[in-house]
């Protein structure tokens, strides 16, 4: 009698020990797996950054910033592409930012949960992840074909379409962070709605709105696909945005795919420039947001 109870106890503790070991083992396997996948993932990304910085710095010379893109076999730089990129990006943001901020204002301040706002939000999310090359095809058929030629303006419009949903989304999110009591206090003092929005809400969310615009700039700086058949490319200096304009992403694409080594080297230098400016913009956003949170 006593013996059998003892053995039952022994079995029970054995079972529990087994279970315990099995749980420990499963835990160990999963955690080791997660560590390995992290190392695996970071390995590729580190490799990418190391080659990019290695090749990029090697070919980054002063002439890159002062000379225009060369024909194959001659020395040159990327000056016209850099200027073209800045112009197209600037024009794109100048179109996209006001529309985006106002649309975000509508969603957060005027529409709330009306059916219109719900559908705008939904479509905006779709547009946010829509393939950028499709936007290029769209601008090609509504701007380039009627105008009869490729132009910097068409490129700027395509970039504006990419910037727009990003700005709409961040503006709405940031305006929603402004406490309602501030709006109510301003209304109680007799301020009209536009004054509440412009003088109180915009002011409180200033750094947030700026964040959205900076994020949009960072995103469109490296966009290549929509520029392929809108801004096209130009081997020389352009006289304005009304003709094909050289821009960094398309130049990188053409030069990297070419068989000439000089061109490929310039492509590395351009790739480094783009990556560094995107990273700097993102770090700027981070410090802005942290400063805003502290203030």
């Amino acid at each position: 009698m006593k013996n059998s109870r003892n053995s039952i106890n022994r079995i029970r503790s054995n079972i529990n020990m087994n279970l315990y070991r099995r749980r420990r083992l499963a835990n160990l396997v999963i955690l080791a797996g997660s560590m390995l996948t992290t190392i695996f993932g970071l390995f590729w990304l580190c490799w990418l950054l190391i080659t990019l910085f290695g090749h990029g710095f090697q070919h980054l010379a002063l002439s890159v910033f002062t000379q225009p893109t060369p024909p194959p076999g001659e020395s040159g730089g990327l000056a016209n592409a850099i200027v073209g990129s800045i112009l197209i990006t600037g024009a794109g943001i100048a179109v996209g930012a006001p529309v985006g901020v106002l649309a975000g204002t509508f969603l957060s301040e005027f529409a709330m949960d009306s059916p219109v706002a719900t559908s705008v939000r939904f479509i905006n999310d779709v547009l946010l992840s829509a393939p950028s090359i499709i936007l290029g095809v769209f601008i090609y058929s509504v701007v380039v074909v009627p105008m009869g030629h490729f132009s910097g303006w068409a490129g700027a419009l395509a970039l504006a379409l990419i910037a727009l949903p990003i700005i709409v989304r961040t503006t709405e999110d940031m305006l929603k962070l402004v406490p309602n009591t501030m709006r109510e206090a301003a209304c109680a003092l007799g301020a009209p709605r536009w004054k509440v929005t412009v003088a109180i809400v915009y002011r409180a969310a200033r750094s947030g709105i700026l964040t959205g615009i900076l994020l949009a700039i960072a995103r469109i700086t490296g966009e290549t696909a929509p520029l392929l058949f809108t801004a096209l490319n130009n081997q020389f200096w352009s006289r304005g945005l009304n003709e094909p304009v050289a821009n960094l992403p398309v130049v990188i694409f053409q030069f990297a795919m070419s068989p000439y080594e000089d061109w490929q080297n310039l492509a590395w230098a351009g790739a480094l420039l783009i990556t560094v400016s995107v990273l700097v913009l993102n770090i700027l956003v981070r410090t802005l947001l942290r400063g805003g949170a502290r203030g």
């Binding site: 006001p98 106002l102 649309a103 005027f110 479509i123 547009l127 936007l135 769209f138 509504v142 536009w194």
Partner: peptide, 26 residues
């Protein structure tokens, strides 16, 4: 104030509708 109110809400509504218009146009 009323005019500016109407202007701001109208303009922002127009911009929001532009998002819908763009997807339809695409």
């Amino acid at each position: 104030g009323q005019i500016l109110d109407a202007l701001l809400s109208g303009l922002s509504r127009l911009c929001a509708l532009a998002v819908l218009f763009i997807i339809a146009a695409i």
